[in-house]
Simulated scan of single mutants.
Amino acid sequence: MSDASEQREREAAKLTRHESLGGLEMLAARYRDHAYALHTHPTWVFGVVVAGVEKLRIGRRQHLAQAGSIIIVNPEEPHDGEKGAPAGWAYRTCYPDAALMAEIAEDLELRGLPMFSEGIVQAPELARAFVRAHRLAGELDQEAAMLVVLSKLAKRFGDGKVRDHASEAGETARRFRLYGELIAADLSAGFDLAQLAAAARVTRFQVIRDFHRAAGMTPGQYLRDRRIRAASALMKTEMPLAEIAVATGFTDQSHLTRVFKTIKGLSPGAWRAAA
Score class of each variant (00 low, 15 high):
G158T: 06
H41N: 05
F250Q: 07
A127K: 03
L126C: 08
G68R: 04
K261W: 04
F211K: 05
L223W: 05
R10L: 09
G47I: 02
A245P: 03
R229K: 13
G52R: 04
Q122T: 10
A105V: 02
E168S: 09
A85R: 10
V121A: 06
A270R: 10
S117C: 10
V148C: 13
L182F: 08
D33N: 14
G81F: 04
Q206S: 12
H255I: 00
Q66V: 08
A194D: 14
G216I: 06
A35D: 04
G112W: 02
V149Y: 06
K155N: 14
E77M: 11
V45P: 00
I104R: 01
R174D: 13
R156I: 07
R227G: 04
F46T: 03
R135L: 13
L15I: 05
R224L: 06
A13K: 03
P219G: 10
P78C: 01
N74F: 00
R175Y: 08
F250A: 11
R177V: 13
Q253Y: 12
S254N: 10
Q142Y: 01
D107A: 14
G81L: 02
A199H: 06
H255D: 15
K155Y: 00
L24M: 09
G47D: 07
D33I: 02
F191K: 10
I228Y: 01
A129H: 13
Q206A: 12
A184E: 09
K14M: 08
S267F: 02
A275G: 15
E11H: 00
W89L: 04
E11L: 06
R132V: 09
R57K: 10
A105N: 07
F46G: 10
G190N: 14
C94H: 03
Y31S: 01
G158C: 02
V207G: 06
A35Q: 14
R57W: 09
T237E: 07
G88T: 09
